[in-house]
C-alpha cells in the first residue's frame, strides 16, 4: 500500500501557495495535517501530481479573539483547540467536541481547516461550524472572500471552496451570557466517525430556549442544521412535549444516507434520541 508518485512543494507564504495552486490547478492537492489525505494516497484512492504542503505558512495557525469574534487559523490542529483555554471559555462547544475526534495521535496532526475543507459529513467540526455560525475566510488568486458555514457545505465531500482556493481561517462570533452548548455523538468505537451526532447551542432565557442551533453529523451528505427542529424548540421551556415536537420535526427534515452498519431509519432514530439528550443537557 504505497502512495503513487507525486511531487512536493512547501511554500513559505500564502501567495506562493496560491501561485502553485494556480499553476497546477486540479492536479494539485493541498496538504495540511494529512490525516485523511495521506491515507487516501496510501490507498491509491487519490493520485495528485503535486502536493502543496501549506504547513510552513505560519500565518495560518493560531487562535485569537478580537472584535467579538474568535479567529482560528485553518492550520490550527485539533490538539491546539483541545489545549486552548481561550476556546474552552469562548467557544465551549468546540472543547466539548474535540475529544471525540479520533485519537490523540490524530488530533496532534489533523487541522481544523483540513477537516472543514474535507467536509466529511460524519466529522465533528463541520457540524460544529454550523452550530457556532462560523464564517470561513478563503483566499484565492484574486484575494480573500468570506463564506458562511451555512453556505459552505454543498454536498458529499463538496464545498464552496474552489479548486484554486485555500481556507485560511475560521471566525466564530462570540456569544453573550446565558448560552449553553452540548455535543453528543454515537460512535461504535471511541474515536470512530459517528453514526449520528449533534452539536447543540441555545441561550437559556428565564428557562426558555432562545437562538437554538441544532447541527447534525452523520445523517446526510452534509452536516445539517435542523431548522424545523430548532423552530419547534425556539421560545419554549424544556419539556417532554417540546422534545417530542423537535424530534418529530427532525424526522421530517432528515434524509440520512445509510452507512455499512446503520440504515437511514436507525440514523434518524438516533438523531432524535440525541436531540432529546442534548436539550436535557442544555436545560439542566
Amino acid at each position: 500500500m504505497k502512495a503513487p508518485k507525486f511531487a512536493y512543494a512547501k511554500p513559505a507564504t500564502l501567495p506562493a501557495a496560491l501561485a502553485l495552486l494556480d499553476q497546477h490547478g486540479e492536479e494539485a492537492k493541498v496538504l495540511a495535517g494529512g490525516q485523511s489525505l495521506v491515507a487516501t494516497l496510501n490507498m491509491r484512492l487519490s493520485s495528485p501530481a503535486i502536493l502543496i504542503d501549506i504547513t510552513g505558512i505560519a500565518a495560518l495557525s493560531g487562535i485569537s479573539t478580537a472584535n467579538g469574534k474568535v479567529r482560528i487559523g485553518a492550520l490550527t490542529r485539533h490538539c491546539d483547540i483541545e489545549r486552548s483555554a481561550e476556546i474552552a471559555k469562548s467557544v465551549p462547544l468546540l472543547a466539548q467536541a474535540v475529544g471525540q475526534i479520533a485519537h490523540a495521535a490524530i488530533r496532534n496532526a489533523g487541522t481544523l481547516g483540513g477537516s472543514i475543507a474535507f467536509a466529511d459529513p460524519a466529522a465533528e467540526w463541520p457540524a460544529c461550524m454550523l452550530a457556532v455560525d462560523a464564517e470561513f475566510i478563503i483566499a484565492g488568486k484574486s484575494g480573500e472572500r468570506r463564506v458562511q458555514a451555512r453556505d459552505f457545505f454543498k454536498g458529499l465531500y463538496t464545498t464552496a471552496l474552489q479548486p484554486k482556493e485555500i481556507l485560511v481561517a475560521i471566525e466564530i462570533p462570540l456569544l453573550g451570557a446565558g448560552y449553553r452548548s452540548a455535543f453528543l455523538e454515537l460512535a461504535r468505537r471511541h474515536g470512530d466517525y459517528a453514526i449520528a451526532g449533534v452539536a447543540a447551542i441555545a441561550k437559556l432565557d428565564a428557562g426558555k430556549f432562545r437562538d437554538v442551533r441544532l447541527a447534525y453529523l452523520g445523517v446526510g451528505a452534509t452536516p445539517i442544521l435542523a431548522k424545523g427542529a430548532m423552530a419547534a424548540i425556539e421560545g419554549n421551556a424544556y419539556s417532554a412535549e417540546v422534545v417530542a415536537a423537535a424530534q418529530q420535526a427532525l424526522g421530517r427534515e432528515l434524509d440520512p444516507i445509510g452507512d455499512l452498519y446503520s440504515a437511514p431509519p436507525t440514523k434518524t432514530h438516533l438523531a432524535r434520541v440525541l436531540t432529546g439528550r442534548a436539550l436535557a443537557a442544555i436545560a439542566a
Binding site: 512536493y8 512547501k10 496538504l31 494529512g34 490525516q35 495521506v38 491515507a39 496510501n42 502536493l51 504542503d53 504547513t55 495521535a105 490524530i106 496532534n108 496532526a109
Partner: peptide
C-alpha cells in the same frame, strides 16, 4: 502522530 500518515519530506 501516526507515522504512516506523515510524509517523511514533511
Amino acid at each position: 502522530v501516526r507515522g504512516c500518515l506523515t510524509l517523511a519530506v514533511a
